[in-house]
Design a protein around this nucleic acid. Sequence first.
DNA 1: AATCTACATTATAACAATTCTAAACTGTTG
DNA 2: CAACAGTTTAGAATTGTTATAATGTAGATT
Lengths: 145, 145
Amino acid sequence: MVKNCNFIEKLRGLGLRPTKQRVKMCEVLFNREKTFHFTINDLVKMISEEMNEKISLATVYNTVHAFEKKGYLKEITINSDKSYFDTNTSVHHHFYDEDTHELIDCDENDIDPVNIKKNITGKKINSVEVLVKVASDNQNQKKLN
Amino acid sequence: MVKNCNFIEKLRGLGLRPTKQRVKMCEVLFNREKTFHFTINDLVKMISEEMNEKISLATVYNTVHAFEKKGYLKEITINSDKSYFDTNTSVHHHFYDEDTHELIDCDENDIDPVNIKKNITGKKINSVEVLVKVASDNQNQKKLN
DNA sequence: AATCTACATTATAACAATTCTAAACTGTTG
DNA sequence: CAACAGTTTAGAATTGTTATAATGTAGATT
Ligand SMILES: [Mn+2]
Ligand SMILES: [Mn+2]
Ligand SMILES: [Zn+2]
Ligand SMILES: [Zn+2]
């Protein structure tokens, strides 16, 4: 799903009919080098800009959830106002820029493995994810006060 | 705010009038040994059970936000469906039980300090929080398949 | 104690994100 | 080319949250 433009076959392979809406969404979502983090609204905006025909909001929700269910998108919880999604479906860490509300993926070199020393009886660990919140280091602005 | 029942003085000290709604909410929220994680709905339910008079939903929202602003509650983002709040306002890590949807605080002994090796130019780190998702270790259930 | 006023509570409306519904449409199979 | 299951769609419904504006009240002022 990460390679080039034959999303039609890829969708079929997932048991999803390759409608033009889905193919367009694949292009927007998966035809890129880097991880993409987005909200439904971001996505609707991008699609309507790139497309001459309009795509229904319901379809965007439907398709995002279909891709999520198939394991090609992952929901990321940053803030309870709205859902974020991520084309990087692995367990991974994030930086979150509180000024720009931008998410940045970490790779293995960015954060050392997290050492969990507690275990909860009868429970196994499914994921360990770190969220690092950053904001502008406003030394300059402080001087203004 | 964590001690006993003279919340009236404590509220006044914060510049908040000690109305009976606020005092009741203090009792529910802060009269406990351990950290308390809750949603607005949890709280409304608990209050209406403990109280003979009813309290307005708007007041619960107002008061939770007032306490948050004063630094006695912290919003925790677990899931984008609804907001969670935490009586532990420090930067700290959580275990999240995906079966019971329960949050458990970590203390310093539970997780080693997280070593962040990346820095983003012009940005400073405001917080580093780990979310460990756990679920029942269902070896037994697997045998049933 | 009565009055005053800024702050609080309340019911309800408004709102935004998301999900549901049911009718119209379309990709696929035979 | 049917026929059918899966898909899209507009709009309604639902949910969590915030705004509004009328009423109530804590605490100060007289
Ligand atoms: Mn928030
Ligand atoms: Mn969710
Ligand atoms: Zn990511
Ligand atoms: Zn906590």
